[in-house]
């Protein structure tokens, strides 16, 4: 880790132009790509901390994601083959019949930034697709998203499908989205209600730490 933390600082304060010019500059100066990536990723973690303290909000997370994407694009193929250690796999999707993707998208982004390998199944995901993805990936955590109270039934269906496939013991199930509460998580047979993407990351980290 270099002592120069300019990129970190610029991203934490959401200075888009500064991040871009600094990344270009540091590449030219020969700063190792790993060091640049480390700074960017640490900045995203700090942005997450500030979100939890309600200093940053969802639009700030989205904006930080956009800045990050452009910065990584500058690193280009340099960043690709760096096999950054995976903290574990997480299967994520919006439940069947529900096509909302903003919350799910944020969870995917935050989990990836935190070092998880995310299997993103998209929106309106059939229970069987969740089951197949868990089986294929061997993920120990699955995250379901929904935005409608009408989707509570789909959460139950998905949990049941996981049970019927005989893999309920292998995965920890978290659920999130605007209408979800602890009561919903409990009554639908999930293990955890994540009030935001960062709670989801904590839950996944705890599962993999065991």
């Amino acid at each position: 880790m270099g002592e120069n933390r300019d990129i970190y600082k610029a991203l934490v304060s959401l200075k888009e132009k500064e991040v871009k010019s600094l990344v270009s500059q540091k590449i030219e100066e020969g700063m190792p790509v790993d060091d640049i990536m480390d700074q960017l990723q640490e900045a995203l973690i700090e942005i997450g901390n500030r979100f939890e303290k309600e200093e940053y909000f969802i639009p700030d997370l989205i904006y930080s994601g956009a800045i990050m994407k452009d910065a990584v694009a500058l690193l280009g193929p340099l960043s690709d083959d760096k096999s950054r250690s995976s903290k574990g796999k997480v299967v994520v999707g919006t439940v069947f019949g529900d096509v909302h993707d903003i919350g799910k998208g944020l969870l995917v982004m935050i989990l990836s930034n935190a070092g998880f390998e995310v299997i993103d199944l998209g929106v309106s995901v059939e229970p069987k697709k969740f089951v197949d993805a868990i089986k294929e990936s061997g993920a120990k955590v699955v995250g379901m998203s929904c935005l409608l109270t009408i989707s509570f039934g789909a959460i139950i269906d998905t949990v049941n499908a996981i049970k019927e496939a005989g893999i309920r013991e292998n995965v920890a199930i978290m659920v999130g989205g605007a209408p979800v509460t602890d009561l919903v998580a409990e009554k639908t047979g999930c293990d955890y209600y994540g009030k935001d993407a960062f709670s989801g990351v904590k839950f996944a980290s705890d599962v993999y730490a065991k």
Partner: peptide
């Protein structure tokens, strides 16, 4: 819009699908 009976199951309410 995603409409029940077309892109959505007939027993699910219609939904607004926002460009990504």
């Amino acid at each position: 819009y995603k409409v029940p009976g077309i892109e959505l199951p007939p027993d699910v309410g219609f939904q607004y699908f926002e460009p990504a």
